[in-house]
Amino acid sequence: MAHSTATAAHGQSVWDGGVSPMGASYGKLMMWFFLLSDAFTFSGLLITYGLVRSSHPAFEGLVDSFKFSTEYWPIPEKVFDAIPFYHGIPLPLVFVGIMTFILIMSSVTMVLAVEAGHRMDRKAVEKWMLWTILGGLTFLGCQAWEWNHFIHGALSGDAVAEGTQFFGANLRQNQYGPQVFADFFFFITGFHGFHVFSGVMLNFLIYYNTVTGVYQRRGHYEMIEKVGLYWHFVDLVWVFVFTFFYFV
């Protein structure tokens, strides 16, 4: 790892190798290009959502008179209006707002870990990595609750879809509207949640390596920066999911 970088010595031609025109190490560069390809994957999912959504009629009428129906696309704030411990009180989109806040904060602590790594401050890296991991786990917990609520549905209210009594949603039935709405919810937030899960695993790995002094011996904390890129990307994707799934 330590030999993966080099700069051209004086008097050498640029074509003799050892020059990095992008000013980044191999690992960091490949992380960037991986993230670019991952951005395309997520775009594929979100744009397909956009295609299907724009092919369905929107609900015409006042937001207050909205009822779940398979005839039109649901208004997201009417679907996602619950938060833990406040059962039955409609608090639209508050919970996703909290989740967004958690993810942005864990992104901030991640940058702080990267910054501490530049100073070779091992204790600070450990501290900020722990906060980042905690943020990631909290987000996953929130998402588990969100999924649970979405699957089981509300206990009251108009849960009648096409004359049948059904609460919540799964891949075959959906209380909230057209079936694809639930399918997209599971696929898009699920795919993102899996990225968060992988990110927490990677974060834990670099935390472990920091604690055991691997990066201190190596002489640099670039690994924190590389995994940090991935973690910020997960945050970035959530910003888009947040807007296009919950708001638009």
Partner: peptide
Amino acid sequence: MRYFLPIRKK
């Protein structure tokens, strides 16, 4: 040897 690792301002 390290690459240019830019300093971040808190």
